[in-house]
């Protein structure tokens, strides 16, 4: 499958330093991959990506990707109340809290 992919803020700097294109690029992924699989494939460690937009909304990292999806990776550091208002913090709390 092919997804469209963006990385913001520090994530962009990290990927660029490794020569990985990350501004509005198409990328081939194996069928059945989740967002987390994709983050791992790019080499990010735990905590480096706080939240992920999937087709314009913040979604759990366990979500399975599909052909044509649009993915944007967001590292920690979203200013203002937007971390709350966009649901970034709530999703992050949910994902990092021990069950």
């Amino acid at each position: 499958m092919t997804i469209n992919f963006n990385a913001f803020s520090f994530a962009r700097l990290t990927l660029r330093s490794q020569g990985i294109e990350c501004v509005n690029v198409d990328r081939e992924l194996r069928d059945g991959m989740t967002i987390q699989d994709f983050i791992d494939e790019l080499g990010f460690e735990a905590g480096e990506i706080e939240a992920v937009f999937l087709n314009g909304t913040i979604r759990p990292k366990s979500t399975v990707l599909h052909d044509g999806d649009r993915v944007a990776l967001l590292p920690p550091g979203t200013p203002g109340s937007y971390r709350l208002i966009l649901g970034i913090k709530a999703m992050n709390d949910q994902e990092t809290s021990p069950e």
Binding site: N6, F8, L74, T78, P79, Y82
Partner: peptide
């Protein structure tokens, strides 16, 4: 985040 990119980091987000 703020020192590196300022509030304008919000545009893409």
């Amino acid at each position: 985040g703020l020192p590196a990119f300022g509030t304008d980091i919000l545009v893409n987000i």
